[in-house]
Design a protein around this nucleic acid. Structure first.
Length: 572
RNA sequence: GCGCCCGUAGCUCAGUUGGACAGAGCAACGGUCUUCUAAACCGUUGGUCGCAGGUUCGAAUCCUGCCGGGCGUACCA
């Protein structure tokens, strides 16, 4: 059950007729301070203003009308016009009992699922994935998992950069500077070397290379047999390398429709826009002028080539026809804000008005120097090596703390803890802000880290091992939950909040809302763990009740971390 | 120049249509293992929420101006 939603609908039903019900309900929120209760209704203050009546009076009247049983006792007016609501312990306990036998942990099936396309990761296939791809991949994956858990229909689409000018650079490199032996041994690294070579030359001002690469791109797009053949030759290698890293990250896609997929639709897009009077010729290019932005939206360049703007429009049309989505989320860094603003505006004018197109923007990953995160040599940090280092660091902690575990298990734990740390550090930050990559903070065993949550999980597994018991009987025959200790109640109410937290995280498209909740949950558990003996509880009933709280906590942590793409281990 | 984002404790960051004395982690200091994993727990110290105005019963949150930083700004994606 979503308790917040339930309280909201009760408060909404009792709201004065003059109140706007939706906003009145929305003003019900978890209590800012546990001393005031569990939930608070703040709507009377805004209403008091618009009605010209004392808010406190409205709150008192409302309190008299509210029927919160059996959830909670009478609402208590406080301060300028707050209404404080405290759930009954019995209600919390009953909900927890019910949760024990519920695989979904209180998440209810959705009456009207939305269809959501999530466009994320979308790396350039010409080069190995680096740290810059991390955020899109991880945030997109997490949002997909959260929305799926909430019962929505999610389509995960990896919009690969497999058709742009990077390929022209590789083609130029292949034709002028390839090392055949190196290519035969390791195609992906050799192609990456050639790409970097071309990029360095162009950056260095070598306009001959720039022109040559551009012409190779144009030939590829025009259907030149040699370049097309090379493209078909290179692609499987590139995709294979990507698949390996996605496998390690545990990220899956429903479709991987790259830019090349849309190639034969681009001319039609431009024709369409032109006929509709949206696109016009300007300085030799075909563009759409969008109010509010200076630079036009270029759909065909002077040389006749199409741009990613054209591809993105074709993609919108394809997705609309194929899936009829309610929302399309573009998990792309904030620097492309202008592009998406224009894209969405043009799409609307083009006729796509029933779908919400949203740019889920995120900031840059910075190094300790607050400049974009680079290696000592100034190269971008490869994703593989990043994960390797995280795993190595985790491994050394495990070796130190748990030498009794065998080698294979320590390795597995290191992988789970290491990759979990990297992901969690990213997801626990508000995605809008840039974030400073800090190994020490990330790998810390304490504080808001993946390790802390995984540790809480492992401790619970240890309790069941030590007690030589399993949670299954508790799930089949839920015991009476006892909440007599403050730590028990604190933990219990946290456990009930998963559904409302997920809804908020999905609404805001912010995984950090989920990480915050899981951290608070692990915190509540640690406090409980210190203060409430489980196996040595003073009565069998209390022991069963506490074991049940342990099981619910472990399952919530596992499920919640799962929605962040992070795994757990039974011991660490 | 114009546009977008940001400025909260020594450091890194949360802060849900504007709501109760602004929160957490790290760092610092002080406690807690003969009992379920101390990768833990409990406590203390620490902030003119960049500055100045304005709106409001109430502003970190909304508006205006300024200061400081990041990013974008016609044929890369």
């Amino acid at each position: 059950m979503n308790v917040l939603e339930r309280v909201r609908s009760i408060v909404g039903a009792a709201a004065p007729p003059e109140a706007d019900r939706a906003s009145f309900e929305k003003a019900v929120r978890p209590a800012s301070d546990a001393r005031h209760g569990d939930y608070q209704a703040n709507g009377c203050m805004a209403l008091g203003k618009s009605l010209g009546r004392p808010p406190r009076e409205l709150a008192t009247e409302l309190a008299g009308r509210l029927e919160l049983e059996p959830l909670a006792g009478p609402a208590v007016p406080a301060g300028p016009g707050f209404l404080n609501i405290r759930l009954h312990d019995d209600f919390i306990a009953a909900q927890l009992s019910q949760m024990l036998g519920d695989e979904r942990l209180g998440l209810e099936p959705r009456a009207k699922p939305a269809t959501v396309v999530i466009d994320f990761s979308s790396p350039n296939v010409a080069k190995p994935m680096h740290v810059g791809h991390l955020r899109s991949t991880i945030i997109g994956d997490s949002l997909a998992r959260i929305l799926t858990a909430l019962g929505h229909r999610v389509i995960r689409d990896n919009h690969l950069g497999d058709w742009g000018s990077q390929f022209g650079m590789i083609l130029w490199g292949w034709k002028t500077a390839r090392d055949q032996a190196a290519y035969d041994a390791d195609p992906v690294s050799e192609l990456a070397r050639l790409y970097r070579l071309a990029q360095d030359r162009i950056k260095g001002g070598d306009s001959a290379v720039e022109t040559a690469a551009r012409s190779e791109t144009a030939k590829l797009h025009a259907g030149d047999p040699e370049n097309r053949a090379l493209w078909r030759e290179f692609m499987p290698h590139a995709l294979h390398a990507l698949a390996a890293i996605y496998e390690r990250l545990g990220v899956k896609f429903d479709v991987q429709l790259g830019e090349s997929f849309y190639d034969d639709r681009l001319a039609g897009v431009v024709d369409d826009l032109t006929r509709a009077g949206l696109a016009v010729e300007s300085e030799g290019a075909i563009v759409v002028f969008v109010e509010g932005t200076e630079a036009p939206f270029i759909v065909r360049k002077t040389d006749g080539a199409f741009t990613y703007a054209t591809t993105d429009l074709a993609t919108i049309a394809y997705r609309a026809a194929e899936w009829a989505p309610d929302h399309v989320l573009y998990v792309v860094d904030h620097r492309q804000g202008d592009h998406f603003k224009q894209l969405f505006e043009v799409a609307r004018k083009w006729g796509y008005r029933d779908v919400e197109l949203a740019h889920v923007a995120f900031g840059t990953i910075l190094g300790p120097d607050r400049r974009p995160f680079k290696t000592r040599d100034g190269d971008v940090v490869g994703l593989e090596s990043l994960l390797d280092e995280a795993t190595t660091r985790a491994r050394s902690v495990i070796d130190e703390n748990s030498p009794e575990l065998d080698l294979a298990e320590r390795e597995r734990i290191a992988e789970v803890v290491g990759t979990g740390a990297v992901k969690y550090a990213d997801l626990s930050q508000n995605r809008i802000s840039d974030y400073v990559f800090d190994w020490n903070k990330m790998m810390a065993m304490n504080g808001n880290t993946a390790t802390y949550l995984q540790y809480a999980y492992a401790r619970i597994q240890s309790i069941f091992r030590k007690g030589d018991t399993s949670p299954e009987p508790l799930r089949e025959h839920p015991p009476v939950i006892v909440l007599s200790h403050p730590a028990e109640r604190g933990l219990g109410i946290r456990l009930l909040r998963l559904p409302e937290v997920l809804e908020l995280a999905a609404y805001e498209r912010k995984p950090n809302i989920l990480t915050d909740h899981l951290f608070e949950l692990a915190n509540a558990f640690s406090t409980f763990f210190e203060g409430c003996p489980v196996l040595k509880a003073d009565s069998p009933e209390r022991r069963q009740s506490r074991l049940a709280l342990c099981d619910l906590t472990a399952r919530t942590l596992k499920k919640g971390l799962g929605m962040l793409g992070i795994d757990v281990v039974d011991r660490m």
